[in-house]
């Protein structure tokens, strides 16, 4: 381990100059900046933080990926397995909820849950709030958010044809989904 690795509680050596913004992994107490994680402090622009790639619980504005476990006309329950690109350990998934008004940005009152998600779909979403005790609230109201993987009734992996339709390559049948815009398109 490098010698400039800090342990929790150790003061962070600060360079002279303008005051810094503190990111994650550092805190100020009695005017002194200290580390709160084990690691090496790094600068990202003017933000000082100790970064660790580790699974962490969802927070507002994190991008999450999960699979739909339960559907009702009002909401879809999602089991979150990836938070900000970091997969969670097996069996330690968080529960999220996509309410019907959070599925898309326009014509919210015309949305039918059955035309947007099915059980088992893998959905990419954005956490909008910590929600209630049981679940985080997720939205898919953005072009790049929505279903990213789904299987058809015939069992084939479907491909998106428009932002609200997916086609099964086996049967050619079109099913309705709120699709995420594929990356790099």
């Amino acid at each position: 381990m490098p010698s400039d690795c800090l342990i929790p509680g150790q003061p962070v050596p600060l360079p002279r100059g303008p005051t810094l913004q503190l990111g994650s992994g550092v805190y100020t107490r009695n005017g002194e900046t200290r580390a709160s994680l084990l690691g090496t402090p790094q600068f990202h622009g003017s933000t000082l933080s100790i970064h660790r790639v580790k699974p962490h619980p969802p927070a507002p504005n994190s991008v999450v990926v999960g699979s739909v476990t339960r559907l009702s006309p009002q909401q879809a329950v999602v089991s979150i397995t990836v938070v900000d690109g970091v997969p969670l350990p097996p069996g330690e998934d968080f529960t999220g909820v996509i309410r019907v008004q959070d599925i898309r940005a326009t014509e919210k009152d015309k949305v039918r849950m059955g035309d947007c998600f099915r059980g088992g779909d893998v959905v990419k979403g954005l956490v909008i709030s910590l929600g209630d005790a049981r679940s985080y609230y997720i939205t898919t109201a953005r072009n790049d958010l929505g279903v990213i993987f789904a299987t058809s009734e015939a069992g084939g992996t479907m491909e998106p044809v428009s932002w609200q339709e997916m086609r099964c390559p086996k049967t050619g049948k079109v099913e309705k989904r709120k699709c995420a815009k594929p990356e790099g398109l």
Binding site: I7, P8, G9, Y27, L37, K54
Partner: peptide
Amino acid sequence: LAKAGVEMLGL
């Protein structure tokens, strides 16, 4: 806790 990367004020 330090090893697990939980944010703490000190050891």
